[in-house]
Design a binder for these strands. Structure first.
Length: 287
DNA sequence: AAACTGCTCAACCGCTTTAGC
DNA sequence: GGCTAAAGCGGTTGAGCAGTT
């Protein structure tokens, strides 16, 4: 037995909304709101439409403060940041962009933004293969690498994000002052997706509530974490790895599971502490 | 001018989640 | 805890438009 339809589809109007229908719905919503029931709304409002259709029309087009038109660079950056960290959770992404709807963002990503950033990756791909051998205690910075930066310096953590982005590049290295990336989640995802990570010159910075800034140096532990554990000893030499350099972003909370030795001071939880990474490398083995 | 192609985006479909009982 | 209906959500579709041949 199939699912009961939400309305009598044969009797309700489908397709584009007319200005009269828009006015009718808007007028009703202004006066009464949804009344907690979208299914019953069309009848009350005198609309020959499915309740779901009314809801969609209201949310995506008629409700107040909807922003239409071009997306700004800042909005682009936010979308890429979030997509690379949470994937196609459009409603969540939309919640970070006031006035934008999930539908808008989804369409924008699928038609424009994805191509834009994938194009950048392909343009910069030659840079990726030119990373010189470097001493592993140092951050892997180079002038050429400056152009190959994951949006906001965060790590794709699901397959859809990775396949779609495949390391999108942007010149925005200073963005992402407040990323919320659970530490333990990163490490697990990297293992699953064969990512590498190296933190260099990390330090703990002021928490959002204020307080002193205590530097932390991860030293060799970074190497275990990034290179040897997850990349089979290949190193960041450009042979098989994409290197991505991100600067000045913050991680909040989380903890490293299963290997507390990686933590400065022997382990434990970061909880609400804010970690500031002065430089960070993220890469992916291509084999 | 007509046919074709590619792009955009509003709207739909159907699955999942949530809320109420 | 189980059931049901509604709401939420993300993938997909297709009409309309612009640009190209």
């Amino acid at each position: 037995m199939g699912r009961a339809p939400c309305c009598d589809k044969a009797r309700v109007k489908k397709g584009p909304w007319s200005p009269e229908e828009d006015a009718q719905l808007k007028d009703f919503m202004d006066k009464y709101g949804t009344g907690g029931n979208w299914i019953a709304l069309p009848q009350k409002a005198g609309l020959n439409r499915c309740g779901k259709s009314c809801r969609l029309r209201w949310l995506n087009y008629l409700r107040p403060n909807i922003k239409h038109g071009e997306f700004s660079d800042e909005e682009d950056r936010v979308i890429c940041n979030l997509f690379s960290s949470i994937g196609s959770r459009w409603s969540i992404i939309a919640s970070h962009l006031p006035g934008r709807t999930d539908n808008d963002i989804k369409n924008y990503w699928n038609t424009k933004l994805k191509k834009k950033f994938l194009g950048l990756v392909s343009c910069n791909s030659h840079l990726i293969k030119q990373q010189p051998q470097q001493h592993h205690h140092q951050p892997y910075l180079s002038s050429s690498c400056q152009e190959v930066v994951l949006p906001a310096g965060i790590i794709p953590h699901n397959s859809s994000a990775i396949s779609a982005l495949n390391f999108v590049s942007t010149s925005a290295t200073t963005a992402a002052s407040h990323l919320h990336v659970p530490y333990h989640y990163q490490s697990h995802q990297m293992e699953r997706n064969n990512f590498m990570l190296n933190f260099g010159n990390s330090e703990r910075s002021c928490s959002s509530s204020g307080g002193s800034c205590t530097p932390i140096n991860y030293g060799r532990r970074d190497l275990q974490f990034g290179q040897y554990e997850y990349c089979d000893g290949r190193g960041f030499d450009g042979d098989n790895n994409i290197l991505i350099n991100a600067e000045n972003y913050n991680l909040y909370g989380g903890r490293l599971e299963d290997d507390s030795s990686l933590l400065p001071g022997g382990g434990g939880e970061f909880d609400s502490e804010e970690l500031r990474l002065d430089s960070c490398l993220v890469g992916r083995c291509l084999h």
